[in-house]
Amino acid sequence: MISYETHVLPNSDYYVYTPSTLAKKLFFYPICTGSFRYESGYRLARDSYDSFLLMYILKGTCFVTVDDQTMQATAGQLVLLDCYAPHAYGTDSGFEALWLHFDGPMARTFYETIVLEKGSLLYPAHPDAIYRFLYNIYDTFRSRAPIAKDQISGTITNILTDLLTAETTQHATRKTQTDISDAISHINKYFYKSITLQELADIAALSPYYFSRVFARETGMTPHKYLITTRMANAKFLLKTSQMSVKEIAIRSGFSDESGFCTAFKKQEGMTPNEYRNTVC
């Protein structure tokens, strides 16, 4: 089918597919696929389109916005999006892409695992194979060939497996670890102040959602849990080494009031701050 979207150039076409009930239960399945040429000024923003998107950038550049974070995708990269969530993409200079909207029982698991480890913009381990896989699905519909549900599902599995097993570059790994370390240093330095998730995510240059996932992977706890644990460590130190009142210790440790501090302390330590202060250790 010919696209009539604004800023989509001629010779762009797409094909839709309605999977059977059995295919939805058992397989990865395509929803629509296409090969588009976009000119400068193209914009698309959706609250939801029930599928996941694989978009291989063949030429040019496009921007992609997800979780309030905008990224630049260039030729050779593959964009992986959860279209159930708000998302947008477009271009100021034009680009060409081969794309596939798909879904399946394991689609979200694959998506979350890949994006958590590598992000939404990916360099495939085997780019020629990825292009061939996507093109074969697209060409099956374009040529009106018989649809083999199991074969198409296997092709989508191959694409996702390639993305899942592609090695993250050492530079990217070091960068992520450095960004998380900067956020941890910020907590350690300013734990007595009000610290928001957005503030920490901004330090790491990540969206709050992805920052939380990466932070938990690196530290074994959520950012909030890490902050509370740091505040408690400071409070325990002051209880054992100073004559400050419990109220003053609570405030100096970042808690808004004495009551909230005592409740949190007893929940974590199994005793009140004064009981902890009077223990011999």
Rank of each mutant, 00 (worst) to 15 (best):
T157L: 14
I159P: 08
P208V: 00
K149C: 12
R144K: 14
D202V: 06
Y192A: 15
Q170I: 14
S153P: 08
A205Y: 10
I159G: 05
T157Y: 14
I184R: 00
L160M: 12
S194P: 04
S153Q: 09
N158A: 15
L160H: 07
L197R: 01
I147D: 08
E167L: 08
S207T: 00
R144L: 04
I152Y: 07
I195K: 00
S153V: 07
K189E: 11
F211T: 02
N158Y: 15
T196I: 06
D150T: 15
I195W: 04
D162Y: 10
T176D: 15
L163D: 13
A204K: 02
I187T: 03
T140S: 01
S153M: 08
I195F: 02
K193P: 03
H171K: 12
I180H: 01
S143N: 11
T196E: 08
I187A: 00
N188K: 11
H186S: 05
T178W: 03
I203T: 07
S207H: 04
F191N: 04
A205G: 06
K193S: 11
Q198P: 05
I203H: 04
S194G: 13
S212F: 02
I156C: 09
T140G: 06
T173F: 11
Y210E: 12
I187E: 07
R213N: 06
A145C: 07
F141S: 01
L206H: 08
A204M: 04
D182P: 01
N188F: 00
R142M: 01
D162H: 11
N188Q: 12
R144F: 06
Q151K: 15
P146S: 04
Y190N: 14
Y210H: 10
T168P: 03
Q151D: 15
I184A: 01
A172P: 05
I180N: 02
Y190C: 10
F191M: 02
R144G: 03
Q170R: 12
Y210K: 02
T173V: 14
K193D: 09
T161M: 14
Q198G: 10
D150H: 15
R142Q: 02
L164V: 10
A148E: 10
I187G: 07
L206N: 07
Y210W: 06
P208I: 00
Y192L: 05
E199I: 03
S194L: 13
I159S: 06
S212C: 05
D202P: 06
Q198N: 14
A148T: 11
S194A: 13
V214F: 03
S185C: 04
Y210Q: 08
L163V: 08
D150Y: 13
T173Q: 14
I147F: 09
S212L: 01
I152R: 03
F211P: 03
I152M: 06
A148L: 14
V214I: 11
L200H: 04
T196A: 08
P146N: 02
T168M: 09
I203G: 01
A145W: 06
I184H: 04
L200R: 03
L163C: 15
S153Y: 10
T155H: 08
S181N: 13
A204V: 03
A166P: 06
I187V: 12
T176W: 12
Y190T: 11
E167K: 14
T173D: 13
A145P: 07
K189S: 12
R144N: 09
D202A: 02
